[in-house]
Computed example of a mutant assay.
Amino acid sequence: MTADPLVRIGTGDWAPYVDQQRSDGGALSRLIRGIFEAAGYQVELVYYPWDRNLLMLEQGNLDAVMPYICNKNRQRFSQCSDAVAHGEVVLFQRADQQLNWQRFEDLEKFRIATTLGYSYGSKFDAALDAGRLQVQQSGKEDTGFRLLSLGRVDFHPQDRAVGYAMLQRLFSAEERALIKHNPRILHAEPLHVLFRKDDARAQRLLEVFNAGLRRLVANGELASLQRALNAGNADQWQFTLESSVQ
């Protein structure tokens, strides 16, 4: 047993990856808890807004946060795990609009709803920071879709699997029929667990997690999870604790 067995991990409601309404916390919560429990740790998941999670990690109030894109700004105060899943960020739009974009610069003419604390890829983040995009930012997960359904914005970027899970859970069939995703992918990048930087315990937690994750790669469990996410069957994906130990 480890000397300090409790691992506090900050996350947010982001079904199908993380689902606060499920007793097991969703697919990535099952994955992370299983790996750490097999190594003698206990996991406490705490749910905060995405930007607050990062601030608490930077201030040393959390051991890790998940799931996040591993960008340069976050690497200032965190260490990134191996990839736990691969997501595709797409632009959701109203089904009755024909909006086309070919180059990233084309997005500058559109109204876009974003969520605070999200990263949408380095090019989008840089354009946002430089003020080149017309954005409405909100801390609530569903605001972007609600603005979209009301016609107040043209696009809402979101992970494709997350977007459709959110629409299914929070919107009526009539509302869902009004929204689709643009076929052009905005950004594709793996998702990670971010651990505290320059901290001996966090370094050990990172090593424990990566070791367990690599065993799941070797036995095919991680590929099985990705297939379940892509097919919309993440809630059915399960693995035993024995899957994450040698």
Rank of each mutant, 00 (worst) to 15 (best):
R8L: 13
D13S: 07
W14L: 06
P16S: 11
P16I: 04
Y17W: 10
V18D: 02
V18M: 11
V18E: 01
V18K: 02
D19Q: 06
R22I: 01
D24N: 06
G26F: 01
I35L: 08
E37K: 06
A38S: 12
A38D: 05
A39D: 10
Y41V: 03
E44L: 06
P49W: 02
R52E: 09
R52W: 04
N53C: 11
L54P: 00
L55Q: 14
Q59E: 15
Q59I: 12
N61C: 10
D63R: 04
V65C: 08
V65M: 08
M66N: 01
N71C: 06
K72H: 14
D82P: 06
A85W: 00
A85M: 03
Q93Y: 04
D96K: 07
L99W: 08
Q102N: 15
K109Y: 11
Y120A: 03
G121F: 07
F124E: 02
A126P: 12
D129A: 15
D129H: 10
A130I: 04
A130D: 11
R132D: 07
S138P: 02
G139P: 07
K140F: 13
E141F: 10
D142G: 07
D142I: 12
G151M: 12
D154H: 06
Q158S: 13
D159F: 06
D159N: 14
F171S: 06
S172G: 14
A173E: 15
A173Q: 15
E174G: 09
E175C: 07
K180S: 11
H181K: 09
N182S: 13
P183M: 05
R184F: 09
E189G: 03
L191P: 00
V193T: 02
R196H: 10
A202P: 03
Q203F: 05
L205D: 01
F209P: 00
G212Q: 01
L213G: 00
R215G: 04
R215H: 14
L216C: 05
N219S: 04
G220D: 09
E221L: 06
R227Q: 14
L229A: 01
A234H: 02
T240V: 14
L241R: 14
S243Y: 01
S243W: 02
